[in-house]
Every structure is written in structure tokens, then in C-alpha cells.
């Protein structure tokens, strides 16, 4: 069995974000982290591989040398077998082009499972896994909190509005990871050393036979939403109730 798993870097949500002069992306001293949902996807890939002898795991990222570093340190150092970087300018590509790039890599690699994070915490679109599944004509199980793989099938429990839904998908399939899927492991020192020697391919978008590289959605302007002002501190429950009643008229 073969599993392809995403390793996307994202800007740290706790860092201060400055809007670039053209208003279309962020700039300045941006701190990057591995997308937390990709960490869950990587952990799930490793667990499936550990439970199924002979499983190969491959991490894929789109970007530049910095992204390559995240693939090595975030995925290969944790135990993923090899890495693929597709060179592209991350800022200007949309979810649709990412999905088509992944589909191009899937056609070269023929994995049984593609495991992605359910969303990237910078763009917050929550689309790529679903788009990819449709481009491939594969079934999908998104927002996974539990995955069991056996006999060419995956039984996936999904976190949905109102509770937990369980689906059985016939492989090959796309699965996207939610946060409660697992606790991502840390890379060991030995893992970090090994990662440097693991196979690593660099591809250009041109290698993937895409029909075109046009985006369908463009960010035309970023704005800072108007903030919320801090209100007042009340001294006790009585004052809180009184304010909620007569000032806010909320109760």
C-alpha cells in the first residue's frame, strides 16, 4: 500500500500579520509552522503504515526551499519514507490549482490513500481534499477523527454538525484529518538525522501535465477587520445581571 500525505507550511496564527503593499498577501517577518492538520495527517499515515507491513509513505509539499525544509523536518523526520516538492509560488495559487497539482502527483505515484489536513489555517478554505477527490473521481471521507484500514477499504469516523458519522470508503480514497484524529508524535534526533538522507524529489509544475496553471479564485485585497473594544469589568454577579438587564437588554 502507498499513502501520499500533505506537508503544508502556514504562517503562525499567533504572529502579527502585516498586509503587503499591494494588499494581496502578507509580508514582513512571518513565522511559519507546519499546518497543524497536516501534522494529524502525517501521524495518521505513520500509524496506518505501522499497522500494515509494506506500506510506503510519501509527503508532498508545494512551494520553495523553505517548504522543502518543512517536508523534511515535519514529515520525513517523523518517519515518512520520502518527500516530493513541487516548485511554485505559494502565494499566488488557489485551492483549485493546489488540488490539480496534487492530482498530477497522484497520477505519477498511484497511492491507495491521499491523506490531507482538512484545512490550512492561513487560507482557511477547507477545499483541497474535496476538490482533489472529485478531480480523481475518488470517494472522500473528510474531517476524520478515526480511520481503520483493512481489505482495500477504510472505515472513517467524521466530525460533522450534530455528531459523528461513520463511512466506509473503497480505496483509493482521499481522507482529510481533523484535530482529534491523533496526537502527532515529535521527531526524534535519530529521525532528524535519517531525514537528511531520505529520497527527495523536486518537480516543476510543468512535469505534471496540467491543462493550464490558471487560478480560478484570486485575492484582490486583504483588510484588517474592525476590532472589538474591550468592555468593562464588573465586580460581582449582581452587577453583571443588572448590566445585562438594563444596559445590554440581553436578558
Amino acid at each position: 500500500m502507498k499513502i501520499l500525505v500533505s506537508a503544508k507550511r502556514v504562517s503562525d496564527p499567533n504572529a502579527k500579520l502585516a498586509i503587503a503593499k499591494d494588499g494581496k498577501w502578507i509580508e514582513g517577518e512571518v513565522e511559519y509552522i507546519l499546518n497543524p492538520f497536516c501534522e494529524n495527517a502525517i501521524e495518521a499515515a505513520l500509524q496506518i503504515a505501522e499497522a500494515n507491513d509494506g506500506t510506503e509513505t510519501v509527503a508532498i509539499g508545494i512551494g520553495d526551499d523553505e517548504t522543502a525544509r518543512f517536508i523534511r523536518q515535519g514529515a520525513l523526520a517523523r518517519g515518512i519514507d520520502r518527500g516530493i516538492l513541487v516548485s511554485a509560488e505559494e502565494e499566488t495559487i488557489d485551492s483549485d490549482l493546489i488540488a490539480r497539482i496534487y492530482a498530477g502527483v497522484v497520477h505519477r505515484e498511484n497511492p491507495d490513500i491521499v491523506l490531507l489536513g482538512k484545512q490550512a489555517i492561513d487560507g482557511d478554505s477547507n477545499q483541497v481534499g474535496q476538490l482533489l477527490a472529485e478531480y480523481l473521481g475518488w470517494p472522500q471521507a473528510t474531517f476524520a477523527s478515526k480511520i481503520e484500514v483493512s481489505d482495500g477499504k477504510a472505515v472513517v469516523t467524521r466530525e460533522v454538525d450534530g455528531g459523528l458519522e461513520t463511512l466506509e470508503v473503497t480505496l483509493p480514497a482521499v481522507i482529510t484529518a481533523d484535530l482529534r484524529l491523533n496526537e502527532p508524535r515529535f521527531a526524534s534526533l535519530a529521525g532528524i538525522m535519517k531525514a537528511k538522507k531520505k529520497p527527495f524529489d523536486e518537480l516543476e509544475i510543468d512535469d505534471l501535465d496540467l491543462e493550464n496553471t490558471e487560478t480560478k479564485v484570486q485575492v484582490v485585497g486583504l483588510v484588517t477587520p474592525s476590532g472589538r473594544k474591550a468592555g468593562v469589568l464588573v465586580k460581582d454577579v449582581e452587577e453583571l445581571v443588572q448590566k445585562l438587564r438594563s444596559e445590554a437588554r440581553a436578558i
Binding site: 504562517s11 496564527p13 500579520l17 498586509i19 487560507g123 484570486q218 485585497g221 486583504l222 483588510v223 484588517t224
Partner: peptide, 11 residues
């Protein structure tokens, strides 16, 4: 976007 820290206007 970015957990609501920024609003992206998209076309």
C-alpha cells in the same frame, strides 16, 4: 482568513 485576523476579498 488567518483565523479571522484578516479578511480577504476574493474574486
Amino acid at each position: 482568513m488567518w483565523a479571522g485576523n484578516l479578511t480577504g476579498n476574493v474574486k
